[in-house]
């Protein structure tokens, strides 16, 4: 538990000292989503229909954007070897790093979503469901992404490779995330979709740290 808190605090403090990482991710999120009205046209009904999907896809890409740095700095300065060698279990370390990553690049997206909902004419009934779906879905994205981030450590063109590996695995989250908002807009219960997203988060919490830890161990060998 101490190791968990130590790593969490260290990562957050490092990110805050460097500053701007979370802000850059949110800025990308808002900017990329604001491009869609130019792409599909500013017609309000059309925007309202695609808003939930646009917000989800750009959130997904924004999370990806920050992921390649998840273990990279620690790998380069050698502190990852220290972590693998330390008595604290690898799972705890991975979980702490994922939580820090989510606080820095997942939570800000959720907080910025209402602004985009206004920009993209998302019907008001859909907003709570969309926020709930993002709250449950983005941690899953970070956890799945952590596997990819650990796998591409030391690889050539790691950033592009990471997207190639992780994006196909995020399809289920995207499907249920958008379905929750669409159901709420159509006046149907969003609960079943949110429950599935919750189940996927629990499954990712249980399985992803193992895979990421295995990948990290072979990366420092």
């Amino acid at each position: 538990m101490n190791a968990f808190r130590a790593i969490l605090v260290r990562d957050l403090r490092l990110a805050l000292r460097q500053g701007g990482d979370a802000a850059a991710v949110v800025l990308f999120f808002v900017l990329a989503a604001s491009l869609f009205p130019f792409g599909v046209g500013p017609e309000p009904n059309l925007l309202a229909r695609v808003a939930a999907g646009v917000i989800w896809v750009t959130a997904l890409l924004a999370v990806m954007l920050g992921l390649d740095r998840l273990f990279l700095a620690d790998h380069e300065d050698g502190s990852l070897e220290g972590m693998v060698a330390s008595p604290a279990p690898m799972l705890v370390i991975v979980l702490a790093k994922c939580l820090a990553q989510w606080l820095l690049s997942g939570l800000p997206l959720v907080l910025a979503t209402p602004i985009l909902a206004i920009f993209l004419q998302l019907p008001a009934e859909g907003l709570p469901a969309l926020l709930g779906a993002l709250l449950l879905g983005t941690p899953t994205l970070v956890l799945v992404g952590a596997i990819g981030a650990a796998l591409v450590l030391g690889a050539r063109r790691g950033g592009v490779l990471l997207a190639l590996l992780v994006l196909p695995l995020t399809v289920p989250v995207l499907i249920f995330g958008v379905a929750a908002a669409d159901a709420a807009i159509a006046g149907l219960p969003a609960r079943p979709h949110l429950l599935v997203l919750g189940a996927m988060l629990l499954a990712a919490l249980a399985a992803a740290p193992f895979a990421a830890a295995a990948a990290l161990r072979q990366a420092v060998e």
């Binding site: 796998l151 030391g154 063109r157 490779l161 190639l164 072979q218």
Partner: peptide
């Protein structure tokens, strides 16, 4: 993705293990 990861490392052993995961 599997094949891209296989070929992405200078050390083939490392690429093999990452791709297996």
């Amino acid at each position: 993705g599997y094949m891209a990861l296989l070929g992405a490392f200078d050390d083939p052993v490392r690429g093999g293990r990452a791709a297996s995961i």
